[in-house]
Computed example of a mutant assay.
Amino acid sequence: MTQLLALDAGGTSTRAVALDHDGEVLGLGRSTAGNPTAAGIVPAAEAVAAAARAALPPGTTSDMAVLAMAGEQSDAFRAEVEQRLAAYGVTRVVLDHDLLALFCSGTASLEGYALIAGTGTVAARVRDGSLERVVGGRGWLLGDAGGGFWIGREVVRAVVSALDGQAEATALTQDVLGALGIVADPAYEAGRVSAIRQLVSAVYARRPVALAELAPLAFAAAAAGDPVARRVVVAASEALADLLDAVRVPDLEGPVVVGGSVVARGVLQAPPALSVDLTPPARGVAVTAVPDGLVGAAVLALRHTGAEVDDARFERLRAAIRLPQPA
């Protein structure tokens, strides 16, 4: 019996769902990073195949796979994925944008807006079921203001400036030193010098985007009342709202779907004492937050077969596709 495969390939994990052609969920799977930019072409293709294998029930194959992913959809990556999924009967691989899958994870509507703010940031306008305009997604070196890397970099800069005596003290100092395993007592001059030396070495020894791991420290310190951290997260929220504004137009209201740890677990889940100062992602318009793009990938897979996904079918998909979220 042939099925459909829908996959959401992210920089941390790859999620998969097997469906029949009526949209009934038959299996779910998860594997490691399936984004070739994050993991490399071959490891990412292997992760996609592993997630597909976990989702397909024994004895079944799939005639089509829809893969939602960020970044460049290169011919080399497609070839690696096609080669591996052929073992499961797949004869057609469709690569879709993760922004479109994210949007379709939050609504059955064919038009509206999507915003992803995780390590990086990107926003899109969706019209007639397709991406009409995309802004952002330029990576840590050229953009991604308001994302996890951007916040983490601002946090480290604030800590270095505080240790150097060039800026005000911040609770982030001990938080960052602890997170990076740095042992030093910045209450004394020698300790400050040692802390800066170790901090600089630790940061430059890691991949630049690893600074995104420090973003939750900013939200926690801001919620606890640290003014330095508060300025960082307020600026991040303003940058995300500006990014979404760049794709919004007066003639398209539509739902707004958001995802990614910074917006979903940071901005939207901030306590009242902090959220009062944060700029809402859509500047007051209600948003729908989703954990990932797997439901949307399933929606896209069905639509690629010509099937209609109305509100009722969408709600059935959303209820059935519930992979446990990693801790």
Rank of each mutant, 00 (worst) to 15 (best):
T107Y: 10
E308P: 00
V200T: 13
T121K: 10
R313S: 13
V176I: 12
D164E: 14
V232Y: 08
R15G: 00
G260M: 03
S201G: 09
S109I: 00
A286K: 11
E154Y: 00
R207Q: 15
P281E: 04
A190I: 13
T14I: 01
A298N: 11
L244W: 06
T119Q: 02
A49M: 02
P255W: 03
G147M: 04
A65T: 08
D226E: 08
M1F: 09
L177D: 07
M1Q: 12
V17R: 01
A51V: 05
P291N: 05
V66D: 02
A52P: 03
A190D: 15
I41T: 15
P324I: 00
V247N: 12
A167E: 14
V81E: 06
E168M: 09
R316D: 11
L26D: 06
A229T: 01
A319S: 15
S74T: 15
V48N: 11
A205C: 07
L56W: 13
R92V: 02
E238Q: 14
R30M: 04
V17M: 01
A76K: 13
L142C: 04
A205T: 13
G10C: 07
Y188P: 00
A45P: 06
A205G: 15
L4N: 04
T107V: 12
A223V: 03
G129T: 09
D75S: 14
G71N: 10
A45K: 09
A270E: 04
V90P: 07
G120I: 11
L240T: 00
P272I: 02
G89F: 14
Q174V: 11
D185S: 12
A87V: 02
P280L: 04
L56D: 07
V247M: 10
A241Y: 12
H304E: 14
A33D: 05
A179R: 15
V90I: 03
L268M: 11
Y188T: 15
L115I: 09
A212Y: 02
A184L: 09
G225A: 08
V232W: 11
V48R: 04
I321V: 13
A319F: 02
A117P: 07
P208A: 12
D75E: 15
D251L: 02
R283A: 05
D245M: 06
G34K: 06
A289E: 00
G129V: 12
Q3D: 04
S31T: 05
V155Y: 02
Y188W: 09
L172Y: 02
T170C: 05
S74Y: 11
L110H: 13
L142T: 10
D164N: 08
V295T: 15
G34Q: 02
T12G: 00
P324H: 01
A320H: 07
P43Q: 03
V126R: 08
G118W: 03
F314H: 09
R157K: 13
D20N: 13
D310R: 12
L85G: 12
F149L: 08
E238D: 15
S201F: 10
V48K: 03
E111D: 15
N35P: 10
V126F: 06
R192D: 06
L243G: 12
I116R: 07
A239C: 04
S109W: 02
G89L: 09
V232M: 11
E189P: 00
G165P: 07
